[in-house]
């Protein structure tokens, strides 16, 4: 009996709270991480305002944690400015999502739309990805994939078309997330993003590999091998 009680006490002491990242107020989490009360309150106010507008608040909280983690070289005032800009982008993402026909818009799709807008996609391109998705709940997958492809250096038009083609290929929707890996493999083989983008826009395909270890499959011609230096 005594050993059981001691074991339960030890487990209670060592087990982190399951609600730490989800259920607890973002201000409290920042305070727990050592942030000043003024900074935590300012972030909590931004989150409360976003929540009042029906925007997803997790991206704001996540960015606040990132800013606080980088406090050695990022001033709190700068973090608050970035959070306000993110809230503005979330509003634009919500508008694009609603325009695409998702009303009320799922929070995950709004967050992904905001991310895509931040990576250079236009509102029309965001709507195109959402409308190409086979179901509303997987539209976020396509938006994040297009965002990643754009970050890899592809033209946004090519990034959007690659996602649309993948959706229309009939494969499981979440497999579009393999596209950045496929493009990374092509870039590792010596292609440049412009080559990949042009191939996509001209109707070529970036086929999702069956297994990542075997590398990407494409009908793109392989670049000539460079002669070895001696």
């Amino acid at each position: 009996m005594m050993r059981l009680v001691l074991l339960l006490i030890a487990i209670a002491a060592l087990t982190p709270s399951a609600g730490y990242a989800q259920g607890v107020d973002v201000g409290e989490q920042l305070l727990a991480r050592g942030a000043s009360a003024a900074f935590a309150d300012a972030v909590a106010d931004l989150v409360a305002t976003a929540r009042g507008e029906g925007l997803p608040t997790d991206p704001i909280a996540d960015k606040a944690f990132e800013g606080w983690a980088k406090r050695a070289f990022v001033a709190p005032e700068r973090v608050l400015t970035v959070l306000a800009e993110l809230a503005t982008r979330l509003r634009a993402g919500r508008d694009a999502t609603v325009t695409a026909g998702l009303d009320p818009p799922p929070g995950s799709v709004v967050a992904a739309a905001a991310e895509a807008l931040g990576r250079g996609l236009t509102a029309d391109q965001v709507r195109a990805v959402i409308e190409a998705a086979p179901a509303p709940e997987v539209a976020a997958v396509g938006l994040l994939t297009a965002s990643a492809l754009a970050a890899q250096g592809l033209e946004t038009a090519a990034a959007v078309k690659a996602v649309e083609d993948a959706y229309r290929s009939g494969r499981p929707p979440e497999e579009v997330l393999e596209l950045p890996s496929a493009v990374a493999g092509l870039l590792a083989q010596g292609l440049v993003p412009a080559d990949v983008a042009r191939h996509i826009l001209e109707g070529g395909q970036i086929l999702i590999p069956v297994t990542p270890a075997r590398g990407p499959i494409t009908d793109l011609p392989r670049p000539p091998k460079r002669p070895r230096r001696r």
């Binding site: 970050a151 997330l177 596209l179 590792a188 990542p212 990407p216």
Partner: peptide, 13 residues
């Protein structure tokens, strides 16, 4: 840095 994790994992450059 950004990675997109697919159902089968990640291929890096």
């Amino acid at each position: 840095s950004v990675i997109a994790v697919g159902p089968r994992g990640v291929v890096r450059s």
